[in-house]
Design a protein around this nucleic acid. Structure first.
Lengths: 278, 278
DNA sequence: CTTTGTGAAAACATTCACAGCC
DNA sequence: GGCTGTGAATGTTTTCACAAAG
């Protein structure tokens, strides 16, 4: 039910719980109640919990034992009301008038995010990015040991990268089953990505982090998140454009209502379906 | 205005327009009207427009000249209503009963995203990830030429990576101003990131893509997006946990509506502020 | 008849503001 | 006094469903 047909995968969107199918398939029972707990946490809040966890780890290393919602929120870059709301989804672990105990909060967030269990990771596509991912210290240190690497290139077969020998993509199914890989990272070019994805799924992998610029087709019980650098850049580009346009129109507006549209290119006059200049 | 204090930066969240500050600072004029156009496009829709653009480019290469909302939506992994709504934000460029002309749509989305102008990119931190980014073909091919690389390591000074010589981070301000860099990519470890960010901003960079696991402090007129691999993994982990838990509770619930709440822990009755069981 | 474009409704997420507890 | 936890209010995004257009 997660990440099926509609909804752009991972990366940017992050809205909608992705659980519409569950509601549809049993119209008799309104709310299954028992399986609500985890589902009840908004997708957006889950993402922030991961950020809080990192910030809390920092506090913990500095031997800070207690934080207020205000402090934690500031460090995480959110406002305190949102932080308290997010934490309320996982339970009440604060003390009124005092704040939260860092170690308790770390434990509860880890439990909620399922980090008490190790998730072994496979990286497919050992090019520039795959290399970087295989060597990325952030994975193992946070409970995500990289336990398999794959590439199409036979020359790489057996070559160790970051201490792990690369295997051929033909072995994906076998190796993933054997090592109980739960998370597959796709760092291949676009062409191979769907095929790789299919093999990962056949190997029992239920979560995929996709760096390839394609929309993957997966069964309903597989979760996909997408990181697309080009998309990120284009979103930034949009904001540059908006800012420049704002600045341009502000110039025209400040000096009273003379022409104002002087430096604006010709095709500018109809944007967004609204005629801006008569 | 964009990405200030509240709101987790980039990456996950992507909600809220981020323009609250603009509204606050001029309480006299209710809606400035002229600077509305681009702002009116929801953040989430902007991200999807970038995806549509990639899919459309694919169609274009296959010499497909016309697509319906249904086809395009399927290829982009969204539902057609959402796609049409998204496209409606940038104008009416379809033909009822027929569909959209691929080339027209590509042009309009590029214009909306500000891709008619080149954005030169600087990458800071030439480690594993920085290397991958410097060599990443997706940037230049999509109008984002990488025009500067920086690293702290003096040994790298002058060494070409992907054809571009690495410069020392001390030169960031100077080089960014000189080459009119608009987008800065931070691929350094956490420690250096804020300092690097400050220099990029001093060098006139108004958009930052941050791979370092820290929340950056920036002026209101700088846009930050964050890509955090550990966070992505943890979100996936959460979904694994939720699925397993669902499966476990489903075992207890399948056998008809006898007690039904049997295996539910005590704290279950109040979730999300609503009493689930009477 | 097919498909777009879009108001209106529903779902979702954030912020407010304050009761309740320490 | 200070801070958490949370209903209620507000704002945003998605979905529905259908009139308008070719």
């Amino acid at each position: 039910m997660t990440s099926h047909g509609d909804d752009v995968q991972g990366g940017e969107d992050r809205s909608g719980t992705g659980d519409r199918a569950a509601a549809k398939e049993s119209p008799d029972v309104e709310v299954p109640a028992a399986r609500e707990r985890a589902r009840a946490i908004p997708e957006a809040a889950v993402a922030r919990l991961a950020v809080y966890l990192r910030v809390l780890s920092g506090f913990d290393e500095e031997s800070v034992t207690t934080v207020s919602s205000e402090e934690l929120a500031a460090a995480a870059g959110v406002n305190s009301a949102k932080l308290r709301k997010d934490l309320s989804y996982i339970g009440s672990y604060g003390t009124r008038g005092v704040g939260y105990e860092v170690s308790v909060l770390i434990g509860q967030i880890e439990r909620t995010l399922g980090l008490t269990r190790k998730h072994s990771v496979a990286v497919v596509g050992i090019g520039n990015l795959g290399h970087a991912l295989a060597n990325y210290g952030g994975f193992p240190s946070r409970g995500f040991p990289v336990s398999a690497l794959f590439d199409l290139d036979p020359d790489l077969d057996g070559v160790p990268v970051g201490g792990i020998p690369v295997r051929h993509v033909d072995d994906i199914v076998e190796v993933c089953q054997e090592r109980e890989v739960t998370i597959g990272v796709i760092a291949t070019p676009a062409q191979g990505a769907q095929e790789v994805c299919d093999r990962l799924v056949a190997g029992g992998v239920s979560c995929i982090l996709n760096f390839a610029p394609v929309v993957l087709q997966v069964p309903d019980d597989v979760e996909v998140r997408k990181v697309d650098l080009a998309v990120e850049m284009q979103i930034l580009s949009f904001h540059v454009a908006r800012r420049q346009q704002d600045a341009a129109t502000a110039n025209g507006a400040d000096l009273g209502p003379l022409d104002g549209a002087g430096p604006v290119p010709a095709e500018m006059d109809s944007v967004n379906g609204m005629v801006v200049r008569p």
